[in-house]
Design a protein around this nucleic acid. Structure first.
Length: 423
RNA sequence: GCGGAAUUGGUGAAGGGGUUAACACAGUGGAUUGUGGUUCCACCAUGCAUCGGUUCGAAUCCGAUAUUCCGCCCCA
């Protein structure tokens, strides 16, 4: 028996309805914010991710799905969404259009990881990327999208963490300060942190092992190294968040695992008991140099990604049901083989007229047909037998009230419109 | 990359070396004939993740592999 690849899952039934509902809600929310849907390839040149996400990040160094195609091209299944959208932005010269350009995406991402709760090898992300504005309003707006989506869904146990990494100048100064601060303590840090010291010292702050040590607590804070512009930018982001009534916490140690961030970074976590390390539901930030680094014009960007599977887990943990199974309007069955053709053509007419219709394909007996109609949550049942065919008068049963009606064939649509229109 | 626990029909599961793999739900057919969701009866795993080993005999013991769940690292 061939099984699905490790860390993947099939989407069907309740899960499928939930994801479709989320997509619908997100689509309409993005419409209100006036963002444009963008779809880019699921795989890209491997080099794209090395240059954007960062060579030394875990995502690129040990989690990518790399392969060569039959033309010997080096390709990678996308581990995140930003790189592809930025490439698309540059390649199609989308910067000639209205600025800022506000985009969103929804689709599968791939990371070669050990599966566990809230983590799969193929998973779905919803995200936005905004290009062409340095205005802190955009930073606050993107945070508000994630926040409002979660609130709309009914999530309560949320925490918005924000921080600023500053511009290139501030970041460089801070890096120097960290290097000189940690140098005497190098041997006291964990092995991972020793590596981070050499490759990306900011990430030392992210360390869970040393988090509570005095060394870490007394480490220099990024906020002391922000220059005037960076400070002002961060202050305005906070001002706009307050305008929108979004509670946030400034977390000095929030640095994020992707290399491209500048200025604002944020994470929204679920604070539900027992949610573990998968509690980051959405995260993102500003990346003012990424477009230029990839060979595009010097245009700033802001974005975030939300993990759909994690969002569904959080909804489940808060007992929020978004599975909107509605049931059908009409169920038809024939009493014998002779009436099946009529049943089938009648179903077709109902469907074209906008009624959610299903029918008995199996020639079930009466009992099983009624059972099946209940299972489909049918509002009306139409029974077609010899009498009905001869008299051209249909028997229609309201499956909630059990009332039965005789309706002329020609009046059927009108009858159902009236009955179902009440709701 | 490291660690822990699991895997028995469509589903929930019992059985921990002895031949027909319990029970329940779902499904199908019937008692029931054009009006059901109650009740009753019948059918529904030559097979217990896969491969190999031990044994007269393995779902049961041993080994390997796969997958699932959970934790660490990291991430959404």
């Amino acid at each position: 028996m061939i099984q699905k690849p490790k860390g993947t899952y099939d989407i069907y039934g309740d899960k499928a309805r939930e994801i479709l509902y989320l997509k619908k809600l997100i689509t309409s929310l993005m419409d209100n914010y006036n963002y444009n849907y963008v779809q880019t390839p699921v795989f890209e040149a491997s080099e794209l991710f090395h240059r954007t996400v960062g060579e030394e990040t875990d995502i690129v160094s040990k989690e990518t799905y790399d392969f060569k195609d039959r033309g010997n091209r080096d390709l990678t299944l996308r581990p995140e969404g930003t790189a592809g959208i930025v490439r698309c932005f540059i390649e199609n010269k989308l910067y000639v259009d209205a600025s800022p350009l506000k985009t969103w995406y929804f689709g599968p991402m791939f990371r070669y990881e050990r599966p566990q709760s809230g983590r799969n090898r193929e998973f779905n992300q919803f995200g936005v990327e905004v290009f062409g504005s340095c205005n802190p309003m955009i930073d606050a707006e993107t945070i508000s999208i994630v926040y409002n989506l979660f609130k709309l869904l009914g999530l309560k146990e949320l925490k918005v963490n924000i921080n600023s990494l500053g511009d290139l100048e501030s970041r460089a100064k801070y890096r120097e300060a960290l290097l000189s601060y940690f140098k005497p303590y190098l041997n006291d840090l964990c092995d991972d942190c020793k590596q981070r010291y050499a490759k990306n010292p900011l990430r030392i702050l992210d360390c869970k092992i040393d988090a509570n040590s005095d060394i870490m607590k007394n480490a220099p804070k990024i906020s002391d190294y922000l220059n005037e512009d960076s400070k002002k930018h961060f202050a305005e982001v906070q001002k706009y968040l307050e305008f929108m009534g979004i509670d946030y916490v400034i977390n000095d140690n929030l640095v994020r695992g992707l290399d491209y961030y500048t200025h604002t970074v944020f994470e929204i976590t679920s604070e539900i008991e027992g949610f573990g390390s998968g509690n980051v539901l959405g995260a993102g930030g500003r990346y003012d140099n990424l477009v230029a680094n990839l060979g595009g014009p010097n245009i700033p960007g802001v974005g975030f990604a939300v993990g759909i599977e994690r969002l569904l887990l959080a909804l489940e943990a808060e007992n929020i049901n978004i599975n909107q199974e509605e049931g059908i309007d009409v169920y038809l069955f024939a009493t014998s083989e002779n009436e099946r053709d009529m049943m089938f053509s009648l179903a077709s007419i109902l469907r074209v007229n906008g009624f959610k219709t299903d029918l008995d394909y199996n020639l079930r007996n009466f009992k099983n047909n009624f059972k099946h109609a209940d299972k489909l949550k049918a509002k009306f049942i139409i029974i077609i037998g010899a009498d009905e065919v001869n008299s051209k008068c249909l028997t229609i049963k309201n499956n909630q009230t059990k009332e039965e009606y005789k309706v002329e064939f020609d009046n059927l649509i009108e009858f159902l419109d009236e009955k179902l229109g009440d709701e």
